[in-house]
Amino acid sequence: MKVAVTGLNNIDSPGPGVPVIRALKDSPDFKGDIIGLIYDSLEPGAYMKDVSKMNYLIPYPSNGLDALYERLESINEKENIDVIIPTLDSELYSFAKISKKLESIGIKTFLPTIDQLNYRAKDKLFEFCTKHDIKVPKNILATSIQDLYSIQSEFNYPVVVKGIFYDAYIVNNFDEAVTYYNKLSAKWGVPIIIQEYIKGDEYNVAALGDGKGNAVGAVPMKKLYITDKGKGWAGITINDPVLIEKSNKIISVLKWQSGTELEFVKEKGTNEYYLLEINPRFPAWVFLAVAAGQNLPYALFKLALGEEVEPFQSYSIGKIFIRYSWDLITDLKMFEEITVKGEINHG
């Protein structure tokens, strides 16, 4: 059995690839080899000998579908991949679009549909959630600076300015909004999401939907330490039935298929949960869910293979993750291999 995983960029804003691999390997039932798929020659996961056996560079999403498919096809000729688990937001559209083609060469995936991907990204989320009694901050999609003028009439400052894939900034006035609009649109393109700012604590849920409306599992976490980039550097599993119920409901109404990270904020004063975002992949802290008793990535792997999966009933409360960094030492030879051949082999 060979499983290829992307997102080995275990950096200060980490991709979920390495924790997903760790989760697979953590399952006593998992027998197989891991293949790392990387976009950059310095993705740390590719240099970790006990993470993946082989690593291959693949083309960036902005290079188009053919480029990606052709590269995967040629890797598959050597490796005979059974399952690919993509873990990065910006690549999911591409993988979802070529999933049928991948299936035809024997590679299985378990991904959200394009519609589901669109639903979570657009202002439709607002309409959709209010219809199902899920509170969400107000959103507008800006495709030009012109659109920022409507902030005044729709919200009060501060507002949150978000890129379509990543990055979010809290801004206090129009000028700041313009600055971050320009910054984000240069990096990730348009639209830019302008969101009402809800004051309160953030809660995150790692979950897995089976595509039929059931949540296979859901583990909520409160961030204990947040970096200046807004990333959780430590977190603890908590017991909140309301949060679980809300997560199950979102997965059920969306018939979500694949892993997800749901981001909520609990409004100060009212204690109401607002859904901030539906991330279409597991979070980088997903191993906390595994440690708490729900091996969601392994369950996803089984779903991808078409096997039945029993929903998880519980998880341990009070499990803590604390992220740390570690300087891996390697030689120029390794860097040369990946740069020139596009491969790193840990055999």
Binding site: Y39, D40, I58, P59, T339, G342
Partner: peptide, 16 residues
């Protein structure tokens, strides 16, 4: 070679 920029494997199929 810059980290984080297009690599040779990333870009070659584009040139078909």
């Amino acid at each position: 070679q810059y980290s984080g920029l297009m690599n040779k494997f990333g870009s070659s199929p584009v040139t078909k």
